[in-house]
Design a binder for these strands. Structure first.
Lengths: 184, 184
DNA sequence: AAGACTGTACCGTCCGGTCGGTTTAGGTTT
DNA sequence: AAACCTAAACCGACCGGACGGTACAGTCTT
């Protein structure tokens, strides 16, 4: 019901639209994600955006979907037999998005602000990840602390909260890595 | 520019207004924080709300202020000479709000969604806390990981993200406590 | 009387969503 | 290959409702 072929005049603007939404959110805040603003940013008309995403909620869900897809993609890149593979993936997801300025976590805020229910896909995804993480370790609390720290890292970045200085960034990540490695 | 005296005919509805705002946010999502909705929830008229908070931004800032005040109050309760006192305070702040269902951190989301700049007070507060925390420990990365985990805990609760099951809650907190105690 | 509201009416703006077009690109017919 | 058809993709004017804020006359409390 989604994968749509585009046999005729088609440039499939969806990705451009999502990118535009992220750009707007990053520049002016999540509250400024407006269909018109997104349209303008994407070089489209309002109708064009609404054609791809019939409602604003659909647009926001699309944003979240994109984020989750990216998340899964990065998870897939973690070496197969790595112990606590999922945990490592979570960490790398954030580090990776540190280089690119595509703040995908923006979607979380945007979605949560409009309708908390839209976060359900994120919740189920996370639930699955947690199960995988916890079933792969003896030290459940330790794993959870790592998960929480990673989550904290994400929101710290998202809200531009202080991070203790640039010279601490690397040591923190290094510490997290060793914490995770020491889990098994 | 805020602290207002109420020397005469005064019931000072401000706290009730803030509580109402949190209630609305908790029930319907941060996006539904409307002056009218808050007024209705507080058993006030729209004019009454605007009398206490002349603009919506003022209302949101008030929410954040309340949160920070509560935060400071709880920090003050931590035993004086406790090593890594601030860190413990942060943790207790969350645990304490676990009993009460007044999700003060809602303010963060609400504020962030409307105008990221309004988060500045939170940022400066956190910066101060971080300085205190880091200056009181030899193991800066370890302390930061603890801070991050606490932050993660806050957002997990705030967004109703999965937590690995109820039987893990206590062990996680216990682990965090020992982590913090083992720092200095 | 003055402060702390209530209640209602109202304004202007913003924004989500609708809707009737218009353009673009491929296929079909002749 | 020119003419024609079809449908996807998109445009943009418009509507209606929500919402922030104003104004202001009245009410209750201290």
């Amino acid at each position: 019901m989604s994968e749509r072929k585009h046999p005729a005049g088609s440039r499939n603007a969806s990705p451009r639209i999502l990118g535009a939404a992220r750009a707007v959110a990053g520049r002016e805040g999540v509250g400024k994600i407006t269909i018109e603003a997104v349209a303008k940013e994407a070089g489209l008309s309002k109708g064009g955006v609404l054609y791809n995403y019939p409602t604003k909620k659909a647009l926001l869900s699309g944003l979240l979907d994109q984020m989750l897809a990216k998340h899964r993609e990065l998870l897939g890149k973690v070496p197969e037999r790595h112990p606590s593979r999922t945990l490592h993936g979570h960490l790398e997801t954030i580090l990776h998005s540190e280089d690119l300025d595509d703040d995908l976590s923006t979607a979380i805020l945007a979605v949560a602000a409009s309708d908390p229910r839209l976060l359900d896909p994120l919740r189920t995804e996370l639930t699955g990840d947690l199960e995988r993480i916890l079933s792969g370790t003896q030290d459940a609390p330790g794993a959870m602390v790592a998960v929480l720290a990673i989550q904290g890292l994400r929101f710290q970045k998202l809200l531009n909260l202080p991070d203790g200085g640039a010279d601490l960034r690397e040591p923190i990540i290094e510490r997290l890595r060793t914490m995770i490695d020491g889990l098994d």
